[in-house]
Nucleic acid binder design. Structure first.
Lengths: 210, 210
DNA sequence: GTCTATACCCTGATAGAC
DNA sequence: GTCTATCAGGGTATAGAC
């Protein structure tokens, strides 16, 4: 290792990493749009601008490419939702912010919307990917909410975990029904109305204490 | 029309209808298990016990067969959930019954579970089927709940439609996460705990009035 | 490492005997 | 109406030139 040890680390690695990036970016576009079975490796190679054999040299096979892609997207989705700058304010404000962040990050992002659809679609054929999504996105979401509920006894919530499911689940089902199953066109229900009722619901629990 | 007008109506029609039934039953098993793209017409013909050509003579093509099958299942799902013998009792009991019926009919029925998964999977390729599902199952469910909330002002619910979404959506997301996305194995949350909190939540709204 | 060309399989759909 | 046999097309994956 004579001359440029940094270029040996920073130059060629990014070179091959860049190809992988290029393939993944193309593959993401096709898989998210078409689903697993309808996606052909020809289409991916065309979209990524590389030959088919190049894909097979970087990834084992179609399944390997798909798994790598879903894992990356799932982690990105998690970070996008939860690694926001620290939220603050009283419960009524903070909880609404959390809900708004989720809706903005998922419902308004075609990629994460398609990811959710794809995870559900392939939950039978790729159970490990569905479990990864559940572990990272859903479980973390519930945990954060649950811990918040538990650490604020003044809210009067008996079962924080169950309430976290109801709160987060209302958002998930809103995304699925309204954005994926065309509920937007068929049953109008604005986000503000949903969030108003959701907040109202959480807050009125405190009246159970006396 | 001499001898047996009844047999002319009841005999030959069921004969061809029976073939369609046979095809549909076989097709349902394969499509629900494999999804649309992974299902081959060869597999369907084998499962139904008829030749491929027979399928094509009864249905236009693979899409036609799929649409007929999903429409039938969606209607059956709706009837299974909502056409139950009239429920009765005070709100705290009736609402819990409604929720239990939904969970029993959908979460415990592999066919309707797979139907929901399939509707979401193919929502892009068959939007009309997703809309049918949303119209019949989801919209009706919300309407029934919404009307019930609206006709019981003593519950103190400000926005019955939004509350209906939260109530029904919590059940839908419970089914999707726990039953489809392996939440059962990863995040334990019993139905009783969910229902307890859900009922608690609805009931505590009434304390907003005074 | 990357491309072109190809092997081999399975798909949806059809033609023709009965 | 129902079956057997078949077609044309596109799928994944690989071989070999460079």
């Amino acid at each position: 290792m004579p001359k440029t040890p940094t270029s040996q680390i920073e130059n060629p690695l990014p070179a091959i990493a860049q190809k992988q990036e290029q393939i993944l970016q193309g593959a993401i576009r096709v898989f998210l749009k078409e689903g697993y079975a309808r996606t052909s490796m020809d289409r991916v190679s065309a979209e990524a601008g590389v030959s088919k054999q190049t894909i097979y040299s970087h990834f084992q096979d179609k399944e390997g490419l798909f798994k790598a892609l879903i894992e990356r997207l799932t982690l990105a989705c998690f970070q996008s939702i939860f690694c926001v700058e620290k939220l603050h304010g009283e419960p009524a404000i903070l909880l609404r912010q959390v809900a708004e962040v989720y809706l903005t990050k998922v419902a308004d992002n075609p990629d994460y919307l398609a990811l959710l659809r794809l995870i559900i679609s392939e939950s039978q054929n790729f159970p490990e990917l569905a479990k990864l999504y559940t572990q990272t996105v859903v479980k973390r979401g519930r945990q954060i909410l649950s811990q918040y509920f538990a650490s604020h006894p003044e809210l009067g919530i008996n079962d924080p975990e169950a309430m976290a499911h109801i709160f987060f689940g209302s958002l998930v089902s809103y995304v699925i029904v309204q954005e994926i199953l065309y509920g937007k066109e068929l049953i109008s229900l604005s986000r503000d109305r949903l969030l108003d009722s959701l907040m109202n619901m959480v807050m009125s629990q405190s009246r159970n204490i006396e």
